[in-house]
Design a protein around this nucleic acid. Structure first.
Lengths: 139, 139
DNA sequence: CAGCAATCTGGACTTTGTCTAATTTCCGGA
DNA sequence: TCCGGAAATTAGACAAAGTCCAGATTGCTG
């Protein structure tokens, strides 16, 4: 896979590929998330999208992020009370969270093995396994 | 270890053992958490503590839970945006979260193995590793 | 009992996110 | 091109969870 270069033009295709009607606002929000490969919270997305002039309303940002979630375009990472991060990386991976700074980074799942989990309750299926390593600066 | 029976009287000792001045309110909050071995959110704790007459203020509940956290008496479980659970079980274990119902239960860590995690960034120490298995009812 | 520190309290406030009703945009057909 | 309706967007009111603060209470200790 060649190193992907994200442009606003790419975003339209990406959205269509996930069955999402690519509107101007949705393209901007997708571009904000994918061009910087980072974890952004909803208000960070808002800030990025509305840097120049206010273009996109709060409701649209929240609606769009939820839509992206449903369509599997992004993933939700819950590490901090009352601050959900959205992760443009949907491949299986884990997270490293620096509790002092709030910095969140990916841990590639390739070499991580989790074994010995008990069987699930009857009638349940695993949606996702979140593994979060919380670290602190050594004092 | 014999099966522990939690009483309000025990709580005072437990608190003292964790360097916490056992006041009436703190004993009630600790008793709420430990007597039912469950994961409670802050407002569930409030509800339990204030069943009869309103006795304990919101501020005190939040302050006390944070104090318990700092002193290592309880553990915080972040599975749901804007709803932190407090877990009286501080022994190493993981969590199973049923996303539809919001039910949270423990997974004993004894047989679970996590291997292959990359080295931590320099100067960092692991605070805790949270492993959360999110499950959904099969449809 | 006086003084003092620790604790508790109500209530105002903040932050994050949701809801709704009204507007705007987009698109296919006449 | 113009029209009508569906989809999308919007501002702003609202809700829930949690924080903060200044004043009141409690409980020592001398």
């Amino acid at each position: 896979m060649s190193p992907m270069h994200y442009t606003r033009d790419n975003m339209a295709g990406l959205l269509r590929g996930h069955d999402i009607n690519p509107t101007h606002q949705r393209i901007e929000i997708a571009y904000a998330l994918f061009s910087r490969q980072e974890h952004l919270s909803a208000d960070q997305v808002m800030a990025v999208v509305n840097t120049r002039h206010s273009e996109t309303s709060k409701a649209t940002v929240y609606n769009t992020l939820r839509l992206f979630l449903e369509k599997g375009l992004v993933r939700e990472v819950i590490v901090d009370p009352c601050k959900v991060f959205f992760d443009p990386n949907t491949s299986p991976h884990h997270h490293l969270y620096e509790v002092d700074s709030g910095k969140l980074s990916d841990i590639d799942a390739e070499h991580v093995q989790i074994s010995g989990l008990p069987p699930l309750p009857a009638g349940m299926v695993t949606e996702v396994i979140d593994l979060i390593v919380r670290v602190r600066r050594k004092d």
